[in-house]
Design a protein around this nucleic acid. Structure first.
Length: 945
RNA sequence: GCCCGGGUGGUGGAACUGGUAGACACGCAGGACUUAAAAUCCUGUUCGCCGAAAAAGCGAGUACGGGUUCGAUUCCCGUCCCGGGCACCA
C-alpha cells in the first residue's frame, strides 16, 4: 500500500513538472499582459529623438453586442505593424478610443429605459476587457471618448469654427465670417458669390440698409456650418424621425408603421465648397485606386449646362423649365422632359385632364424612400399635360414626372434623349414616346448609345458636326440667346449635420428671434442635460425639446450626428489631456499626418470625406499644419457573418416560415418584410420562437406560420454587424486557444483587405504551429533547450530567408503570407534539429509583433535582458541566401515538361545548348529545330516548336 | 438601378512586375507511438486517363465565353454569381 502510494505521489510530481514546461498560453498571456500594464510598456511620449510613426485604427463604436471577430482583424494588423515599426526604431503612436455617441445606445434607452451614458460606459468596459484579452499595444493613457464633455467641448469648438467661417472661392480657403462682413461693408458681395443663394447681389449700401435679421439670413447662406431645411423619414405613429436603416418597404422596422417624408429645419456642412480640393487632395495620399474612385464618383464633378426651356401649360403660371444636362450637343434629340415629383413647379405644370393621375403619382412617390427610388428597376412616371418648347426648332416636348429624377441633383429636371441614354430609352419605350435618332447608324433602334463620337443628324444647324464640337457651338448659342449657361455640377450634396436625437453633441447655438447665435467659446462645453425620457419632442424635434430649461435658454434642440466626433479624433490622440486647445500646435506638428490608417471600405464616402474636410478647414484657419489627415489608408476586408432572417407579413405582426414564401418572396399574395434575427436564437435555420418573443418588446405578441412544426429562417452571408445580429465573440476563441493563436489565425485567414466569412475550424493549424515553435526552445521534460553552437550555412539560410520574407510581407501588409513564412521556417528548423541561440533568438524578435506573449516568455526564459518589444529587428544579410544556380522549369510551347539546373550567370547561347542537349527536349523536338527558345533569367525557359 | 470589390482543390488561401497553378494550413485517408484515448510524428490528398501496384507519362483545369502573347489566375472585351456603399447605422 505504502509503496504504491509513494510511486503514485512521485508520478504526480513528475506530471506537474512536465505540465509546467508545456506551452501554457493562458498563464503566459495573463502574466505578460499584467507585466506590460505595470511597466507602462506602451506609453508613448511626444518628445523623442526617434522618427515618428502614427498608426491608427478606425474609431470603434462600443456596441452592446461587444467585439465580434471581425473588429480585431484591422486592430491586429495595425498592432503587428506598430510593433514591427517599434522594433525598427520608430516612436510609434498607436492609440484607441471610442466613438461613443450614436443611435443604438439611444434605441437601447428607449427599449430598456437605461440611460445611454450608463449603457455606453458598460459597453466600453466590456470592449476594453475584450481588447485587453488580445494583447494590443495601445497607449491607453491617450484614450478618448466622443461622449465625454472634455472631448466634445472641442467638437463644439470646431463646430463654431465652421459656423464662423465661409469658403472664399477667390483664395480657395476658409476664412472668417467677420472678414466677410468687412467685405460686405466695403463693397457688398461683388466677387463673393453666395453659395446658398447664387443669384444674390447687393452693394455696400444695400448691406447697411438690411435689417440685422436679413443680414444674418445672408450670412447663414455663406457659413460652412449652416441651417436650412431638409427632408427626413417621418413616422407619425412613432412620432419620430427614422434612419434609412430603420425603414423597410416604406414602413418602420419597429412596429411596421407608415413612413413619409417631412421637411424639418436642419444643420448642414457646406462640404460642396470643398469638392475641388477634396478631389485634388486624392493625388497626394495613398488610398487604393478603388477608394479614390469611389470618392471621385461620390463627389461626381460634371461639366454641363443649365438650359431654360419655354413652357406651354394650361395654367400658364410656369413660364420656363430649367434643366441640367452634361450633353447640350444632343438637344435636337430631346423627346421628353422629366421633372422630379417634389419640385414646386409641378403644381403649375399639371393640366386638368392629368390632375388626378399626377396626384395619384405624387402620393405613390411620397411613400418611397430615396434608396428605393434609386434601386428601382420598374419604370414609373406620369405625364403632366404641359410641354416644353425646343428653343431651336420649336418642337413641343411633353413634360413628365418620374421618380428616377431626384430633386436634389442639378435643377431637379432633365431633358431626356432616349437614343443616347439608357434610362431615357427605357422610359420612352415603356410609355411609347417616339424616339428621335440624331446619331444615324450609331443607334440601332433597340438600345441607347451614349457615344460622344458620333456625327449629328436630324439636328438642325448641327447636322454633320461631331458631338464634341457641337457641344461648344450649342453652349455659345444658348449663351447668346440668354437661355443657358455653362455649369459645373457636383453630385455630392451638403452634408446633413443635425439629428433629432438625444445621444449626440448639443449644438453650442442659441436661437433668438429666429437668428442662430453662437455661444462664446468660454461657455463650452455645453453639456448634454440629463433626461428622463428619450421620446421625440413636438413636431419631430429632438428629445431636448422636452426640457423646459433647455427651451427657456433658447438652445438648439438638435444634436450632432455620429460623424462629428470622429471627424477630428485623430488629432485629439496627439494631445488628449489638453484643456486649453483641441490639440497643441506642437503636438500636431510633431505627429503630423496619420502614417497608416486601417479600416473598412464602408467608410469610403462618409467618415473619410468628412474628416478630410474638417482637416482642410482646420488647416485653412491655421490650427494645424497639414490638410490631409491620412497619408496611407489600408482597407481591411470584412470578416463576414452568416445572417438569419424572419419574414413578417407587411403591416401585421405575423411571421411566415421561409419555405412557405413563393418565388417572389410573397406569402399568399401578400408582401412580407424580411427582417434580421439574432443568430444566437436560431439553431441552424430553426428559430426558437419563444426566445424570439422575448428578444424585442415589439415581438412579444408575434404569431408564427410554421412549416413542419418549425419556423425556418432564411440565411445570407453578409457583413458581421451588430445591426444584423450575426456576430461571433473573440473571447471564447482566446479562452480556448490563446491570444497569440487568435492574432495569428485572423491574419492567416487571408489578405487583410479581402472579405471572407468567419470559420472557427482551421484555427488548430496555427495553434499547432505555436506549440511547435515553443518546442524549438523548450523540451517539455528538461526545460529550456538552447545551445551556443555556431550555426551552419543551412540554418543561416533558413533564418535569413525568413528575415527577408517577414520584413517584406509586414511592410506590405501581407500578414497571411508572413504567418506561412514562419510556419515554413519552423518546419525547416525542426528538420535541421536546430537548437542554436544564434538562430532562434533573432527568430523570436521576428515573431514578436505577431505573437507578443509567447516570444516575451521565451525571451525571458532564454535569459535575455529587457523586453523583446525593444529588441532590434534582425538585419537581413544577402550573402547567406545567395544561390549560384537555379532549377529552371523548361516548357515546350508553354507547357512545363521538365526541370534543368543551370548556373545563374549562363548566357542565352549557353542555355540553348544545354536545353537542346536535354533528352526530354529532344524527344519533343522529334528531330526538328525549335522556332525559338525563350530564356528569362532566374524565371523559366520556353522552347517553341 | 448606379459606383466599388471579389470568384483558384472538399475548405481558407499562395503564386509580389505576364513566367513551374494549388505554397502554408484545415479537413479527409492510411500508418507509427499507446492497454486505450489525447497529444505528437510520418505518408498521401486538383480532376480524369493509362498501369495489379509503384514509377513514369498523357489530357483537362484558376466562375463562364472570346481575344492578345512564345507563355495568361495575372492584360483586354462580353456574360453570370457573391459582397460592400448609395447621403439619419457607425
Amino acid at each position: 500500500m505504502a509503496g504504491s502510494f509513494k510511486a503514485n505521489f512521485t508520478f504526480k510530481i513528475l506530471l506537474i513538472q512536465i505540465a509546467s514546461m508545456e506551452y501554457s498560453f493562458r498563464q503566459i498571456e495573463k502574466k505578460w499582459q499584467a507585466e506590460w500594464k505595470a511597466q507602462q510598456t506602451y506609453q508613448v511620449s511626444n518628445d523623442s529623438d526617434k522618427p515618428k510613426c502614427y498608426v491608427l485604427d478606425m474609431f470603434p463604436y462600443p456596441s452592446g453586442a461587444g467585439l465580434h471577430v471581425g473588429h480585431p482583424l484591422g486592430y491586429i494588423a495595425s498592432d503587428i505593424y506598430s510593433r514591427f515599426k517599434r522594433l525598427k526604431g520608430y516612436n510609434v503612436l498607436h492609440p484607441m478610443g471610442y466613438d461613443a455617441f450614436g443611435l443604438p445606445a439611444e434605441q437601447y434607452a428607449i427599449e430598456h429605459g437605461v440611460h445611454p451614458a450608463v449603457s455606453t460606459e458598460t459597453n466600453i468596459q466590456n470592449f476594453r476587457n475584450q481588447l485587453d484579452n488580445i494583447g494590443f499595444c495601445f497607449d491607453w493613457s491617450r484614450e478618448v471618448r466622443t461622449c465625454d464633455p472634455s472631448y466634445y467641448k472641442w467638437t463644439q469648438w470646431i463646430f463654431l469654427q465652421l459656423f464662423e467661417s465661409y469658403y472664399n472661392r477667390a483664395t480657395g480657403k476658409a476664412e472668417s465670417i467677420s472678414s466677410l462682413v468687412a467685405i460686405f461693408e466695403e463693397k457688398g458681395n461683388e466677387g463673393v458669390v453666395c453659395p446658398g443663394e447664387p443669384g444674390l447681389q447687393f452693394n455696400a449700401a444695400d448691406w447697411k440698409a438690411y435689417s440685422s435679421h436679413r443680414q444674418q439670413e445672408i450670412l447663414m447662406n455663406y457659413r460652412l456650418a449652416y441651417c436650412g431645411y431638409g427632408e427626413v423619414n417621418w413616422c407619425e405613429a412613432l412620432g419620430t424621425v427614422l434612419a434609412n436603416d430603420e425603414v423597410v418597404n416604406g414602413v418602420s422596422e419597429r412596429g411596421g408603421h407608415p413612413v413619409v417624408k417631412k421637411k424639418l429645419r436642419q444643420w448642414y456642412l457646406r462640404i460642396t465648397e470643398y469638392a475641388d480640393r477634396l478631389l485634388e487632395g486624392l493625388d497626394r495620399i495613398e488610398f487604393s485606386e478603388a477608394m479614390k474612385e469611389m470618392q471621385t464618383n461620390w463627389i461626381g464633378k460634371s461639366y454641363g449646362a443649365e438650359i431654360d426651356f419655354a413652357v406651354k401649360s394650361e395654367k400658364g403660371s410656369v413660364s420656363s423649365l430649367r434643366v441640367y444636362t452634361t450633353r447640350p450637343d444632343t438637344i435636337f434629340g430631346v423627346d421628353f422632359m422629366v421633372v422630379a415629383p417634389e419640385l414646386d413647379i409641378v403644381e403649375g405644370l399639371k393640366s386638368e385632364g392629368q390632375a388626378a393621375a399626377v396626384e395619384q403619382y405624387l402620393d405613390y412617390v411620397k411613400s418611397r424612400s430615396e434608396r428605393e427610388r434609386m434601386a428601382e428597376k420598374k419604370i414609373t412616371g406620369v405625364f403632366t399635360g404641359s410641354y416644353a418648347i425646343n428653343p431651336f426648332d420649336g418642337r413641343e416636348i411633353p413634360i413628365w414626372l418620374s421618380e428616377y429624377v431626384l430633386a436634389g441633383y442639378g435643377t431637379g429636371a432633365i431633358m431626356a434623349v432616349p437614343c443616347g441614354d439608357e434610362r431615357d430609352h427605357r422610359f420612352a419605350e415603356h410609355f411609347s414616346i417616339p424616339i428621335t435618332n440624331i446619331i444615324g447608324a450609331q443607334y440601332d433602334g433597340k438600345e441607347a448609345n451614349p457615344t460622344k463620337d458620333a456625327i449629328l443628324e436630324n439636328s438642325g444647324f448641327l447636322n454633320g458636326i461631331g458631338m464634341r464640337e457641337a457641344t461648344e457651338i450649342v453652349l455659345k448659342k444658348l449663351e447668346e440667346m440668354g437661355i443657358g449657361n455653362r455649369k459645373v455640377n457636383y453630385r455630392m450634396r451638403d452634408a446633413a449635420f443635425s439629428r433629432q436625437r438625444y445621444w449626440g453633441e448639443p449644438f453650442p447655438v442659441k436661437w433668438q428671434n429666429g437668428v442662430a447665435k453662437a455661444l462664446p467659446a468660454s461657455d463650452l462645453p455645453l453639456e448634454l442635460p440629463y433626461v428622463e425620457s428619450y421620446k421625440p419632442g413636438p413636431e419631430g424635434e429632438g428629445p431636448l425639446a422636452n426640457i423646459p430649461e433647455w427651451i427657456a435658454a433658447e438652445l438648439e434642440t438638435n444634436t450632432m450626428p455620429g460623424y462629428a466626433g470622429s471627424s477630428w479624433y485623430f488629432l485629439r490622440y496627439m494631445d488628449p489631456k489638453n484643456d486649453k486647445e483641441f490639440c497643441s500646435r506642437a503636438a500636431s506638428d510633431y505627429w503630423g499626418q496619420v502614417d497608416l490608417y486601417i479600416g473598412g471600405t464602408e467608410h469610403a464616402v462618409g467618415h473619410l470625406l468628412y474628416s478630410r474636410m474638417w482637416t482642410k478647414v482646420l488647416y485653412d484657419l491655421g490650427h494645424i499644419g497639414f490638410d490631409e489627415p491620412y497619408k496611407k489608408l489600408v482597407n481591411q476586408g470584412m470578416i463576414q457573418g452568416s445572417s438569419r432572417f424572419v419574414y413578417r407579413i407587411n403591416g401585421t405582426n405575423t411571421f411566415v416560415s421561409k419555405g412557405l414564401l413563393n418565388e417572389e418572396g410573397m406569402y399568399e399574395g401578400k408582401l412580407v418584410d424580411k427582417l434580421h434575427v439574432d443568430v444566437n436564437i436560431v439553431d441552424g435555420y430553426a428559430l426558437d420562437t419563444e426566445a424570439f418573443k422575448k428578444w424585442k418588446p415589439e415581438y412579444a405578441q408575434a404569431e408564427f406560420v410554421l412549416e413542419n412544426e418549425q419556423y425556418l429562417c432564411g440565411s445570407e452571408v453578409e457583413k458581421m454587424s451588430k445591426s444584423k445580429f450575426n456576430t461571433v465573440n473573440p473571447d471564447h476563441i482566446v479562452e480556448r486557444f490563446g491570444a497569440d493563436t487568435f492574432r495569428m489565425y485572423e491574419m492567416f485567414l487571408g489578405p487583410v483587405e479581402i472579405s471572407k466569412p468567419w470559420d472557427t475550424k482551421g484555427i488548430e493549424g496555427v495553434h499547432r504551429f505555436l506549440k511547435k515553435f515553443w518546442r524549438l526552445y523548450v523540451d517539455e521534460n528538461k526545460g529550456l533547450n538552447l545551445t551556443d553552437e555556431a550555426p551552419t550555412a543551412a540554418e543561416l539560410k533558413v533564418l535569413h530567408r525568413t528575415i527577408r520574407k517577414i520584413e517584406e510581407d509586414t511592410e506590405r501588409f501581407s500578414f497571411n503570407t508572413g504567418v506561412s513564412g514562419f510556419m515554413i521556417c519552423v518546419n525547416e528548423l525542426n528538420e535541421l534539429k536546430c537548437r542554436k541561440k544564434s538562430i532562434l533568438l533573432p527568430l523570436l524578435v521576428l515573431l514578436a509583433p505577431y505573437a507578443p506573449h509567447i516570444t516575451e516568455e521565451l525571451w525571458q526564459l532564454a535569459g535575455q535582458a529587457g523586453s523583446v518589444l525593444d529588441a532590434a529587428f534582425p538585419e537581413f544579410k544577402e550573402e547567406y541566401v545567395r544561390e549560384s544556380a537555379k532549377a529552371y522549369p523548361v516548357a515546350i510551347n508553354g507547357k512545363t515538361r521538365t526541370e534543368i539546373t543551370i548556373g545563374l550567370e549562363a548566357s542565352q547561347a549557353e542555355v540553348e545548348e544545354i536545353v537542346l542537349a536535354n533528352e526530354l527536349v529532344q524527344k519533343w523536338l522529334e528531330g526538328k529545330a525549335p522556332k525559338k527558345i525563350v530564356y528569362v533569367k532566374n524565371r523559366m525557359i520556353n522552347v517553341v516548336i
